[in-house]
Design a protein around this nucleic acid. Structure first.
Lengths: 153, 153
DNA sequence: GCTGAAACGGCTTGGTT
DNA sequence: AACCAAGCCGTTTCAGC
């Protein structure tokens, strides 16, 4: 599954992660190449699935999303049917920004972004009414120290 | 800090989050407006800081980042100097994708993306050699069920 | 505040070395 | 595989409504 990249590929990916609105010429200049080869490489990386969606990062605070919770979930039920139901609930809820299945004592972790604590409670109530979970611990973020989607390519 | 948006603004933001490479004409068509007003709104939202960076999402697996940890940190030290040092360490480490200061028993949570468990250990050793932390628990992700940067505007 | 047009710049392609 | 040039498409600006 892992793809072979050379130094130029890595520089291109780094530039795109920093600012995907840059022109090809600008990227080419920064990576020490020129338009056509850079364009061909980007195309190849896109086709290989290395480069995915192009998006904009919105400021949560500016939009009134002032609460962020990390939710630790333990469950008793581990059968396939329960899991499918649980995953569907997570996927359809837009306030769930991340969901991971874990190794160890805690079964799942979620990152939930909401406008305020009341909105979190509404999410929580909705979730536990749809699926049975054994134990839920919510960690409230006081301050987002760092947040990046960039991978250190 | 929170900005007032109308329905059209919200639709534009939603489209940009889904695919920032769309042309103005396409976005305008989808939100039921036309080129110039959409462009003016985007400009305004950018200036207001609502729209931040434009970026591409890379596939971690395709690039060999096969391990993801959530790290729960407790600390004894809470003075300003220690905190500044700790924050500097987090900010300069590219494998730290997220870092939040928390309310409650656990003081910090990190999301750390690395190539493998060995790379996580290298990060862990480097971190504890630079700052004193009281207790560290690492939760290993087995499966990324959901991952989005989109806010439900 | 929207429309339409016009100028500008960047993307994309194909031919050439 | 990289360079060059041309056509096309999208962005950006501006005048008119």
């Amino acid at each position: 599954m892992s793809v072979r990249l050379d130094e130029t590929d890595r520089k291109i990916l780094s530039q795109l992660q920093q600012d995907a609105s840059q022109s090809l010429d600008e990227i080419a200049r920064k990576v020490g190449s020129s338009k056509t080869p850079v364009w061909n490489r980007i195309r190849k990386l896109r086709d290989a699935g290395v480069i995915g969606a192009q998006t904009v990062i919105l400021d949560p605070e500016a939009l009134g999303f002032e609460a962020c919770f990390f939710v630790l979930i333990r469950t008793a039920e581990h059968d396939a049917e329960w899991q499918k139901l649980f995953l569907d609930v997570l996927k359809k809820r837009p306030e769930v920004q991340e969901a991971h299945r874990l190794a160890g004592e805690i079964d799942y972790i979620l990152k939930v972004r909401v406008k305020n604590a009341r909105a979190y409670d509404a999410f929580y109530q909705a979730m536990i009414s749809e699926v049975k979970v054994h134990n839920v611990t919510a960690l409230l973020s006081m301050e987002e120290i760092k947040s990046t989607t960039a991978l250190p390519v």
